[in-house]
Design a protein around this nucleic acid. Structure first.
Lengths: 220, 220
DNA sequence: CGTTGTGAAGATTTTCACAGCG
DNA sequence: CGCTGTGAAAATCTTCACAACG
């Protein structure tokens, strides 16, 4: 299944939940596309990778598609999560619980700062990051969230991998290197803002300075 | 310039800052690629959209490329930011200040809850969301961050657009519709976790259930 | 030499458009 | 008839490979 499709499945799932909430028994690719903010052809192509679950002339059975999609996304089981780094962001994430649609219980919190270790956040005691192997094994942790400063992130990633965690969500503004078989996703506020800045500038009449003088010589 | 390239410019910027910090005067596409976590050909292609700023046989001048990239990304000026919604996440974002590399001062906070309006978060008084037009105009706000529940997000987006904000970063788990000329980026924790869940399940030996019985009849 | 800049090839993703089927 | 499922076309993005050049 194409990566681009996988990245959209969660949007369809959420849209289907909305449709279910509105008591819709079936839904067309067109309506689903509208809810998910994509176009109908893409929805049909994407759903076709899951199997032929639609009915021509009718649409998709909401309940059934929900079930298939949840199964495909691995949401029929819980995936225990550990958060490493309990600064501003880490604490917010821990409290933010109600991570969307549940299924990702936060069962462990780790930090390297001895002043933070032992404190309680959202009802969970913060452990030392050194103890990750034991903690990960005890709780069967499969997803690690890195919410440390950039400088500590690679070390934490290495520890997570060593502890057997094979999915990582990285909030630290740095590139992590991990073995092939570990999945990694990143969320970077600064990057998002800078992308917005790029287009904002384009719209607000381009660069303030002229195309800028060539510094020395003539390139090309 | 391709969208995919724009999305990588912030990574190059950060990598260049690291190189600068390490007192490198010049940097090759290969080294830059390593720091940014992409391959060298992509770096060269991406940078070529900015202009021919490299020197064959040598590489890129770090200072000069930093300057060009900052300019291209619109980082030679500040872009004032407003955060709407001061629940857990909104407050964390407000405090998280030090949004990477500065340039995005948080100058206004809004909420719809009268119990929150008037309180102070990170030294900024929370205003009512109704006042957005006045606030936006007064501070020249160009970027709005939506950190409300999903149910309020579209209303807030509409208000932001009406107030003249043309860049939006959406943390609410919902699809927003905005006019063509407004840029929108989204950050969705649930989506990221679900994507990780998909691949995690693939690795841990596929579905627990057998391919599942066809419910009724035989499709295709 | 060593490294950039870039056409051209290749891969992936999106979109079209319509046959097929309930 | 209406809507899905899907080949095929189009668009976009990545990678290759090498000429160009300091």
């Amino acid at each position: 299944m194409p990566e681009a499709t996988v990245a959209r499945l969660p949007l369809y799932l959420r849209s289907l939940l909305e449709a279910q909430h509105a008591n819709a028994a079936t839904i067309s690719s067109e309506r689903l596309a509208e809810l998910a903010g994509v176009n109908a052809a893409k929805v049909r192509k994407d759903l076709s990778y899951l199997g032929s679950y639609g009915t021509r002339g009718v649409g998709y059975d909401v309940e059934y598609l929900l079930f298939q999609m949840s199964r495909e996304l691995g949401l029929t089981q819980d995936w225990p999560v550990a958060i490493v780094g309990l600064g501003n962001l880490g604490q917010a994430l821990a409290n933010y619980m109600g991570f969307g649609d549940r299924g990702f219980p936060i069962v462990a919190l780790c930090d390297a700062d001895p002043r933070v270790v032992g404190t309680e956040v959202h009802g969970v005691v913060v452990r030392h990051v050194e103890d990750l192997p034991v903690i990960a094994a005890a709780h069967g942790i499969s997803i690690g969230i890195i919410a440390t400063p950039a400088s500590a992130a690679q070390d934490v990633a290495d520890r997570l991998v060593a502890a057997g965690v094979s999915s990582i969500l990285n909030f630290a503004p740095t590139v992590l290197s991990v073995p092939e078989e570990v999945s990694i996703r990143k969320v970077d506020l600064a990057v998002e803002l800078q992308i917005l800045s790029f287009y904002q500038q384009r719209r607000s009449g381009g660069p303030k300075l002229p195309p800028l003088d060539i510094p020395v010589g003539v390139e090309d």
